[in-house]
């Protein structure tokens, strides 16, 4: 097996293409923006990536199972609120480490609950995931705004800066957190029965059920895990911005979907891998930081992301056509 084949079978057929894209993007920016190839720039990418990355992981498994989770941002916000509330109850900036620990556990519980409720409605009632998560999103947004009256909550202990801005052996802590989560997700999808079942459910729910797989339990678990991942993202967001506001990260919702599709996840479900999605996230983040150095703002990056996805989809279409013609000849 050649190296290329090894990468294709191990990480997914999209990986070489995305790597090539990444190389091209880096090349172009290093020629046009002089500060692009600097440690500071890659450092800032490394701190920005995890927030979007964790939310994308939360979006990934529902899509693979043939569904969607539109409630990820507000689930993350609610989890952040929970932790913020616990910290504030325990002295705000003076809060010790212990309240942070059980506050985080509580936050994960809130995320899991929101996910489990969605999963249960989807699995046991058979409602469309887009609708269920949309309703959950509207509900959580309302609940969050009701609780915070639309304001910010801030004033957290200093040690949280380590989680948001610290580094271990020069590697940013948020990045470590994200990579650990990505590896866990990869293992979940490729090495566990539930991950296996999630892919099968994404392709054909009924046939999976006929094969003796407990599809309802798996669906509830998928959305619960998605909620837990949102909560991790929410905790990280709290640490990075030293504040919680409902609606924070709202603009990232559709970007996570974009990153999944860019990473070759099948929009109809059944197929998707963590590695190409992580690569897609890196491409998006590098694009954004390069444009930033060239003097463009985040909004131009958003536009470029959208055009980039269209471009990639057109290339995939072209590649498919080309392969078809090759086969015919």
């Amino acid at each position: 097996m050649t190296l290329l084949q090894r990468i294709r079978t191990g990480a997914g057929p999209e990986v070489p293409g995305l790597l090539a894209f990444l190389a091209v993007v880096i090349l172009i920016f290093s020629l046009t923006a002089d500060r692009f190839l600097s440690l500071a720039n890659f450092g800032s990418i490394a701190y920005q990536l995890p927030e979007l990355g964790l939310l994308t992981l939360a979006m990934l498994i529902p899509i693979i199972s043939g569904g969607f989770n539109l409630a990820i941002i507000y689930t993350a916000n609610m989890a952040g609120l929970t932790l913020a509330w616990v910290l504030n109850q325990n002295g705000g900036p003076e809060a010790g480490v212990w309240p942070f620990v059980y506050g985080s556990v509580l936050a994960l519980g809130v995320g899991a609950t929101a996910g489990a409720v969605m999963g249960a409605v989807i699995a046991y009632i058979g409602a469309h995931p887009i609708l269920v998560s949309l309703a959950m999103m509207i509900f959580l947004r309302g609940l969050g705004e009701f609780l915070t009256r639309g304001g910010d909550i801030s004033g957290f202990p200093d040690y949280l800066a380590f989680l948001g801005h610290g580094a271990v052996f020069g590697i940013p802590v948020p990045l470590i957190l994200f990579l650990v989560c990505a590896v866990l997700w990869h293992i979940l999808l490729t090495r566990t029965r539930h991950g296996f079942a999630a892919r099968m459910i994404g392709s054909n729910l009924k046939a999976t059920a006929y094969s003796g797989v407990h599809v309802k339990r798996t669906l509830v678990l998928i959305y619960t895990l998605s909620g837990v991942m949102c909560a991790i993202a929410g905790i990280l967001m709290l640490a990075r911005f030293n504040s919680v506001r409902v609606g924070h990260g709202e603009a990232l919702l559709l970007v996570t979907v974009l990153a999944c599709f860019l990473g070759g996840v099948d929009p109809f479900g059944g197929f998707g891998r963590v590695a190409p999605v992580v690569l897609a996230l890196i491409v998006l983040q590098v694009l954004s930081s390069g444009l930033n150095l060239l003097g463009a703002n985040q909004h131009l990056s958003t536009a470029v992301w959208g055009l980039f996805l269209v471009g990639v989809m057109i290339l995939r279409w072209g590649a498919g056509k080309w392969k078809e013609r090759q086969k015919r000849e």
Partner: peptide, 16 residues
């Protein structure tokens, strides 16, 4: 529709 999951691999179908 019920016996096999057509788009997935032969291997994955066999062990489902």
């Amino acid at each position: 529709a019920l016996g096999l999951i057509q788009p997935q691999s032969i291997s994955d179908n066999a062990v489902l």
